[in-house]
Design a protein around this nucleic acid. Structure first.
Length: 431
RNA sequence: GGAGGGGUUCCCGAGUGGCCAAAGGGAUCAGACUGUAAAUCUGACGCGCGAGCUUCGGUGGUUCGAAUCCACCCCCCUCCA
């Protein structure tokens, strides 16, 4: 079982580094093992950067192990300096406390809390650090760390060596806090494996060392590779910003679209990282796509699988409804209910008042969030890139807002679907 | 506390009295080509439809005129104590 797990992870390219590589396979085969991965509250939602570790917890659980999702109520107060180029601002305890609760819920969707011995748990490291006093911390924990070793860690080296940056004692101490988490989870839950992104290697090995020193136990660490894109830009960001897991921040539709837009050069790799499809099945998809001309199937499969994982079947259906309506059909084919459903599904929408329209389209569309500024709208207008209910507008229409939103042109008497560029849609409803 | 270096438009980074809304690169947006890809080419890129308006850490000042000069303040970095 666990042999198969590690082989599968390796085949998926999900294993970057392993601490205790020789002993880990045998250890995992020997029974139900407890493992953990930490998620720090740096916002009120996780983003897709956390998806790989979240799914990793699930992969281990499916293989019969017990996952702990740690929400960093304590570490989030400090800020992880690993590979960060500069010191970060501290958020207030109240704010962080609010985020902890949201992330606790979010994390919970990915793991099973009721499956016997391998039932998951969510823990918060504030539980064992809040009551820790400075002297105890320094004497019992700090004494095990060598500053010489800590400053050698690659994760903070650039901060220490690079001209123009620096690191506060607070952030420098982060590694010790996270190390203590591992030792404490080992004591409380018999946790013996920590997962993390490759940037966590230094913090994880710190925890392994500390656990050995305090408890005399061998524990393991495993890191996942950094997700890269073939074009070198940062994964997880797009024109409209970060892709969040929270449906309030990134709608299922936008989420689905993100995956649909993955480059060919990345898509098969992402299928392995972000779905539970067999590696063999993914290879078959790739072979099919290669054998056929035109557009690959892989993006659609990836979008479907990941959206279902994160937003559920209902979220997926909503996303697909919008996608089909906007990209594969025309507005004329939609019923009134369909239009209402699109708005319900998360298609960007706003209401307009025909008696109080802004003077220009540039202002209206910029205010609706379709473009960052009126200039961009103007540019699009000048290139015939704006349509209202499938009618193309030009620069000369800019001052004629009322004419563009005439009652007679409305669908079902009140709807206008505006497209700006190839992919940006916005539904206006006359109120 | 002392000495030195630095804070420019989303990011990096030029700019040291007018020719600066500020070079160049990146990111981003739009168009062409396409497959809602990639690559490439083109245009935009402080705000404003426009006249115009508001920027170069902050506040005052010098000047006909300041991102550029002066004073004070804030913040960051390096070294010393």
């Amino acid at each position: 079982m666990s042999k198969a797990l590690l082989d599968d992870l390796r085949a998926r390219g999900l294993i970057f580094q392993v601490a205790g590589e020789e002993d880990l396979p045998r250890w995992l085969e020997g029974g139900v093992r407890t493992l953990y991965c930490g998620f720090d509250p740096t916002a009120d939602s996780l983003h897709i950067g956390s998806l790989v570790p979240l799914l990793m917890l699930r992969r281990f659980q499916l293989a019969g192990h017990k996952p702990l999702a740690l929400v960093g109520g304590a570490t989030g107060m400090i800020g992880d300096p690993s590979f960060k180029s500069e010191e970060r601002k501290l958020n207030s305890p109240e704010v962080i406390g609010g985020w902890v609760e949201k992330i606790r819920k979010q994390v919970s969707r990915f793991i099973d809390f009721d499956c016997g011995a391998s039932s998951a748990e969510v823990v918060n490291n504030l539980d064992w650090t809040a009551g820790l006093d400075v002297l105890t911390f320094l004497r019992d924990i700090g004494k095990h760390f060598s500053v010489n070793a800590m400053i050698q860690k690659e994760s903070v080296k650039q901060r220490i060596e690079r001209e123009g940056s620096g690191i506060s004692f607070t952030e420098f101490t982060y590694m010790i806090l996270q190390s203590f988490d591992f030792a404490e989870l080992h004591k409380r839950y018999d946790c013996t494996l920590q997962l993390g992104g490759s940037d966590q290697w230094g913090n994880i090995t710190g925890g392994i060392d500390l656990t050995r020193r305090i408890h005399g136990s061998q524990v393991f660490g495993l890191t996942m590779p950094l997700i890269t894109k073939s074009d070198g830009t940062k994964f997880g960001k797009t024109e409209s910003g970060t892709i969040w897991l929270d449906a309030q921040r990134t709608s299922p539709y936008a989420f689905y679209q993100f995956w649909l837009g993955v480059a060919d050069a990345d898509v098969y790799r992402f299928l392995k990282y972000f779905t539970f499809l067999d590696v063999a099945a993914i290879d078959a998809i790739e072979a099919d796509d290669a054998a056929r001309d035109g557009r690959p199937e892989a993006q659609a499969i990836l979008a479907r699988e990941v959206t279902r994982l994160v937003h559920g079947e209902a979220g997926l259906e909503a996303a697909q409804r919008i996608t089909t309506a906007l990209f594969n059909g025309t507005l004329a084919e939609l019923s009134e209910d369909d239009v209402l459903q699109l708005r319900q599904d998360g298609l960007p929408a706003s209401t307009i008042d025909r008696t109080a329209l802004p003077e220009t389209l540039t202002q209206l569309f910029a205010d609706a969030g379709m473009a960052a500024s009126g200039k961009q709208v103007k540019d699009a207008l000048g290139r015939q890139a704006v349509t209202v209910n499938d009618r193309t507008l030009g620069l000369e229409d800019n001052g004629n807002v009322a004419g563009c939103f005439a009652e007679s042109d409305a669908v079902f008497g009140r709807f206008y679907l505006v497209r700006l560029g190839k992919k940006k849609y916005h539904l206006f409803e006359a109120g």
